[in-house]
Write a protein that binds this DNA or RNA. Structure first.
Lengths: 349, 349
DNA sequence: TTGTAAGCGTTATCAA
DNA sequence: TTGATAACGCTTACAA
């Protein structure tokens, strides 16, 4: 293994010079010829800087942790897209990304595990993608001065005094409102909404993503003075096919069944359409809006509409902000950044 | 930041003792009371071992790199599942996983970039998931003594003398044979196959995954003495919808159109079914076998069949073998491990 | 313009 | 059973 000592000997200079040359230390003058020599020898010997030695003294390893909870969810291109965003932004600033799979759905010792990762020096900061984090766990992390950014977490709880959390999420409210509005404008007055349950949020008084979806839906109706019929709002755990079937059946049995459909994900929309059809309610693809613009949608014939969620962008912005916090270029802003959600152009992806 | 020096002072012992206690150094006796004290103080102070200092001297950071090329492919749950497998196995042995997104489809300086990651001390070894790697690039890595394991790479090229590559891939040959056999047994005699192009493999004389699919298909026909009609084998870049439509149309125009279908992925199967249908060829879901058992399949009504690829398992096995190579518990075996591919039970996922 | 040497947080070798 | 002390590969005052 060739290190800087070897390099120094071969080049006939001290390690200081080697450092200055290799790091381009600003405000350090090295004789051009010496620089040449050093670079040449380094190249000849195939020298590569040891990141550990460097990190040990710099107290920065140029690596961030990405904690993702989506690994057990079946439908995830989400995790891929977030990863893409984060790694892209990281690579642009010479950073590396360490995967921190979250053990369970629960928060157990989430804070403890993650804090340890930072304290052990393995990463400089964390990006956490988990909707149902307990405020208490986040508070623990912040209390330990862990540089931190949240993704996909719709915080609305009053945050403890002096705690600033940066958070990035898609505008599900606006997106769902647009989707509903779009259908209303087409003349639909009976629009079904398939949304998930509140889960942990009810308890902690958060407003989870599905709550936001419903609010967006309601606002669209409100905007056009269309009366709300809560029977059209299906709530359930739609990762279970039975829940979708049951909800569809209930809807189909209404005296006035829905003529259009908004669903949290494309997968749910697909199944819901089929089930409604089976119960005698036939919706045209043009009266359906799914979510996520998942890849399989374009393979449908014809594809229905979908909300495009800005996962890559979220990942990129999250990293960039985290980097700022790590570098102390900017403290945590304490702001929740809400990224725009758009609708797929007619039938296209 | 509390380090071992602080710990030593507080506990009134030397750093050596601290190390022995914290590492449970085998064959080092420490007075029980001393051990108690050290552990208590460590706990009180919330001490966490610095992984960098440790790695610097141990020359092992307990971290591996996972290089994935699938990030630009649209349909990837693959990457999620492989990641799941690798991180699970890694976590079980106290290892961490660093993401190494491969810049492009090309091999450019794949070897150089990845080797650097190891040489900089950031990772102890690499898992590479990329079907179309050039043998030359792999050879470079091995030449630099980089601990290495391949995933999803169907090597068949004669490997340079003295080079041993460990490789893990799904048995697409066997899987496709089973699928075809299954359909033949149902009485189908006109089975269409949708497979991808050979790409780089033709050039390097590899046998890529799609080549293996075709071989499996042919063998099944052969087993039951069913004559081969190459017109039933559609080859194309089926990430492009037009290619699927074109292929379907060609098939539909045959004097004897197909009555069943085997496709490389569930997404392709979905689109192909629709397109054939549109051209007047109606296939029942029971006469279709897709690939990957992708999550959306269960949302279809009814779902068709699918080949279940062992992505998680591949990830786990790959890590375990890499770990052995890193620890020199076992040298590279030079073996390509072919993991079983099964078919979904009727209509279920 | 270049060199010396201390220090980052560990482990490991020898003594005590 | 415990303690000094030298590595590991790097950066950075400070000195020359």
């Amino acid at each position: 293994m060739v290190n800087r000592k070897v390099l120094a000997e071969r080049a006939g200079v001290s390690m200081t010079v080697i450092s200055h040359v290799l790091n381009n230390t600003p405000g350090a003058r090295v004789k051009p010829e010496t620089r040449e020599t050093v670079l040449r020898i380094a190249r000849e010997l195939g020298y590569v800087t040891n990141a550990l030695g460097k990190a040990l003294i710099e107290k920065k390893i140029h690596q961030v942790g990405l904690a993702i909870n989506s690994f057990d969810a079946d439908e995830d291109q989400i995790c891929k897209r977030i990863i893409t965003g984060v790694t892209t932004a990281a690579a642009a600033q010479d950073y590396h990304v360490l995967l921190c799979p979250l053990k369970s759905r629960m928060d157990d010792n989430l804070a403890a595990d993650l804090a340890q990762l930072v304290q052990s020096g393995r990463v400089d900061g964390l990006i956490i993608n988990k909707e149902d984090v307990l405020t208490s766990e986040i508070a623990k992390l912040i209390g330990q001065k862990v540089p931190l950014v949240l993704i996909n977490n719709h915080f609305t709880l009053p945050i403890p005094e002096g705690y600033r959390i940066d958070s990035f999420c898609p505008d599900l409210f606006g997106g769902t409102r647009s989707a509903t509005y779009f259908l209303l404008k087409k003349g639909h007055r009976r629009i079904a909404l398939f949304r998930g349950e509140n889960g942990i949020f009810a308890k902690e008084n958060h407003r989870g993503s599905d709550q936001r979806r419903e609010s967006g839906y309601l606002e669209a109706l409100n905007l056009l003075d269309v009366p709300v019929d809560r029977a059209l709002i299906a709530v359930g755990d739609f990762s279970r096919m039975e829940d979708i079937s049951a909800a569809a059946q209930t809807l189909a049995e209404l005296s006035q069944p829905p003529t259009a459909l908004v669903a949290a994900t494309d997968a749910i929309a697909l199944k819901a359409m089929h089930e409604l059809h089976r119960c005698g309610v036939k919706l045209s693809a043009d009266a359906v809006v799914g979510g996520g613009n998942l890849f399989f949608r374009q393979y449908l014939e014809p594809p229905f509409h979908s909300l495009v969620l800005p996962w890559e962008l979220m990942g990129e912005m999250a990293f960039d902000q985290l980097k700022r916090v790590i570098d102390r270029t900017a403290g945590p802003t304490g702001v929740m950044t809400v990224l725009p959600v758009t609708m797929t152009p007619d039938g296209k992806s």
